[in-house]
Simulated scan of single mutants.
Amino acid sequence: MADELVRRKLDAGEDLFHQGESADSIHLIKMGSVKLTKISADGRIITLDIRKAGALIGESALLEEGVYPVGATCLETTVTCGIDKKTFEGLVTNHSDIGLVVIRNLSRRIQQLSSRVGALSEPNLEDRLYEVLVNVALEVGARGAGGWTIAFPLTHEEISFLVGAHRVSVTRALSRLRDTGRVRMSGKQLFISDKVI
């Protein structure tokens, strides 16, 4: 399969693809992390998800519509391997184990998104914010003693879209989480401590 892949190295802030572009390739993130965004009808950029190394993005290339419904921007130096739709379908036809890997990957995404939806049902904003940050950390963070580190900057606005609350409210809730020791910021890193019972 390696011969069929197109390797790309992108810098932080560089776009892998844009919303509305022709969805002709599926990408495997080999290193780094990518933010998926959607431009709303009123022109706002909404952060929908963050994907890390090992994740597939651009799965919409497998659909009939033929355009990416979201944009993908690198949060740090990122290496991807892309494969066009026709070649990918041929590989899956000839090597069923590749199809199984994709199915498992998509099943994990569904499980992670279900967990995130569960976190959004938490009525208390502070607890909801903490649960969403834990879910993001589980997906893209590094586990260490006492918690997880997310090693790239998340703006308060991006966090507010992930939590489903206004940016000002998220800023206040984040401040309370810092006061209680559940999160800590150091430069461009965010540390989420194990939940205090």
Rank of each mutant, 00 (worst) to 15 (best):
V102M: 09
L16W: 01
K9T: 15
K35G: 12
R128S: 07
L177F: 02
E76D: 02
D11M: 12
V34E: 08
I110T: 08
S60G: 11
S107F: 00
L120H: 08
A137T: 05
D179W: 06
A2C: 02
A119V: 04
R109A: 00
A72M: 02
I192Y: 06
E157W: 00
E14A: 15
L177A: 09
S121K: 10
D24N: 13
M31D: 14
D11N: 13
L16Y: 09
K86V: 09
R178F: 06
L177E: 06
H27A: 14
M185A: 14
T77L: 08
L63G: 15
A119M: 00
I26R: 04
T87A: 12
R143S: 14
V170N: 08
R182V: 10
V196S: 07
F88L: 12
A165M: 12
G20L: 11
S115W: 07
S160T: 06
S33V: 09
I50L: 12
L138E: 15
H156K: 08
G43R: 10
T149G: 08
A165G: 13
L16Q: 10
M1V: 15
L48N: 03
L120P: 09
G118H: 12
S175F: 04
V6A: 15
S121V: 12
H95D: 10
S160F: 04
S160Y: 01
V168G: 11
I150E: 10
L120W: 07
D127T: 04
G99L: 03
V132A: 01
A2D: 14
G43K: 12
K85A: 01
R184Q: 13
E139W: 02
H166L: 12
R143E: 15
I50K: 06
L36C: 07
A55R: 05
S175L: 08
R176T: 06
L177V: 08
T80W: 00
R44P: 03
L48K: 00
G99H: 07
I39N: 13
L48V: 06
E59H: 09
G71N: 03
G181N: 10
L5H: 05
G146P: 05
L63M: 14
I192A: 08
A151L: 07
R178I: 08
G141K: 07
R51Q: 14
T180F: 05
I103V: 15
